[in-house]
Computed example of a mutant assay.
Amino acid sequence: MHEIGVMFEVVKTVEKVAKQNGVTKIDTVVLQIGELSSMIPRYIEACYPAAVDGTLLQETKLKIEILPGNGLCRECNKVFNLIENKNKCPHCGSNHWELLCGREFKIKEIIAC
């Protein structure tokens, strides 16, 4: 499970940003995770308490937003969800597509108290 190491890095980054901006208390950290990311949201949630223990983020809430894994069909130029459609365009049946989004892992927002 590589999520714990990633979460320690997220905590360090959030603490650094908070310090640079004079923030002393944080309410919520919002992460965006793509459906096609190697990060598993439930593991991120499970790791969060250990990663924030003893830090500025100890009392914070974690919010995760899941971003869709969308592709653009190279044949008909329609956007579709890759997971829901098993990597096949539901409009024309093509397997030729370009990835638009879904591999993201971002700190979207740090909400201060």
Rank of each mutant, 00 (worst) to 15 (best):
N87R: 15
D53F: 13
G22K: 07
V14Y: 06
I83M: 06
V29R: 10
G71C: 01
V30Q: 05
N85T: 07
L82S: 00
E15Q: 11
L36K: 13
G69Q: 03
A50N: 03
I26D: 03
T28I: 13
K12Y: 13
I66A: 03
T24C: 01
K78I: 15
L36R: 05
Y48K: 08
V30N: 13
Y43E: 14
V10Q: 06
F8R: 07
T28E: 15
M7Y: 08
A50H: 06
V52C: 04
E35L: 12
N77I: 00
S94K: 13
G69A: 12
K19I: 02
F80S: 01
R74D: 13
P49S: 00
M39F: 15
F8Q: 11
N85K: 11
A46V: 09
L56S: 06
H91W: 14
C89R: 10
L57Y: 09
E65M: 09
I83H: 04
V6D: 00
T60Q: 01
I33G: 09
L72M: 03
N81M: 02
Q58V: 03
K19W: 05
S37V: 09
K88W: 07
S38W: 09
I64A: 01
G22D: 02
F80A: 06
V11M: 01
P41H: 04
I83G: 00
E75T: 13
A18N: 01
T28V: 15
V6C: 08
I64D: 00
I44G: 07
L56N: 04
E45C: 00
G93H: 05
T13E: 05
N81V: 07
E9M: 10
L56C: 03
G54S: 10
S37L: 11
G69K: 10
Q58G: 07
K16G: 10
K61S: 09
T55I: 00
E35I: 12
V52G: 07
F80E: 01
T55L: 04
T28Q: 13
L31T: 06
K12E: 13
C92V: 09
L31P: 11
A51K: 03
K12D: 12
E45V: 01
I64W: 00
V52H: 10
C92W: 10
V14E: 01
N81K: 02
L82R: 04
R74C: 11
I33L: 07
V17D: 00
T55G: 02
P90D: 00
E15F: 04
A46S: 04
R74F: 15
L57P: 01
F8C: 08
C47Q: 08
N87C: 10
E98C: 06
L56M: 14
D27N: 13
K78M: 15
V52N: 00
L36E: 06
E35T: 12
E98K: 15
F80D: 02
I44F: 15
L56R: 11
K25E: 10
A51R: 00
V11A: 01
N85Q: 05
N85H: 12
T60M: 08
N77W: 10
Y43L: 15
V52I: 11
S38G: 14
R74E: 05
E75I: 12
F80H: 08
S37Y: 14
T24Y: 14
E45G: 03
K88S: 14
E84P: 05
Q32P: 05
V6Q: 02
C89A: 05
C47D: 02
V11G: 02
G22V: 00
